[in-house]
Design a protein around this nucleic acid. Structure first.
Length: 119
DNA sequence: CATCGAACCAACC
DNA sequence: GGTTGGTTCGATG
């Protein structure tokens, strides 16, 4: 099932820019000190995790739109597109209170599922 | 645990 | 059309 968008009285398939807007709004739901994963967002939008990574890279409004709060599903930090990106990302997350284990993995209790925001 | 290959899908050349 | 990512999964050592 693909995501549909309603625009100008017409229902159409979501384009990449639409998906970008959708993930951005989802990102705003992630509280400080918590992270989610590419996989989680991918399942939610029914796209591939790599596409989520691509969308993150397209986010011009970092770090206001907190794309840095998206990490790999196994707890590795994942990427960040700026120069020295990963270091910046780690600093941001630490500043926000995300706990890192001694091996640079993010502890499991810092991850949330966005499904919590349904109901 | 680290690494590998495959599936992934739009952007970019 | 081929390559390349802000990835994942299963298999393998």
């Amino acid at each position: 099932m693909t995501i549909l968008v309603y625009e100008e009285g017409e229902l159409r398939k979501a384009k990449i820019q639409d998906l970008l807007e959708i993930v951005k709004s989802l990102l705003l739901l992630i509280p400080m000190g918590k992270v989610t994963s590419y996989k989680e967002l991918a399942l939610m939008l029914n796209v591939s995790p790599r596409l989520i990574g691509r969308l993150m890279a397209m986010n011009d409004d970092a770090p206001i739109i907190p794309c840095h709060r998206v990490v790999k599903s196994n707890g590795h930090i994942g990427g960040y597109s700026m120069k020295n990106g990963v270091e910046i990302k780690k600093k941001l997350l630490k500043f926000e209170g995300v706990k890192f284990r001694n091996d640079n993995h993010i502890s499991h209790d810092s991850m949330i599922s966005l499904k919590e925001f349904y109901e």
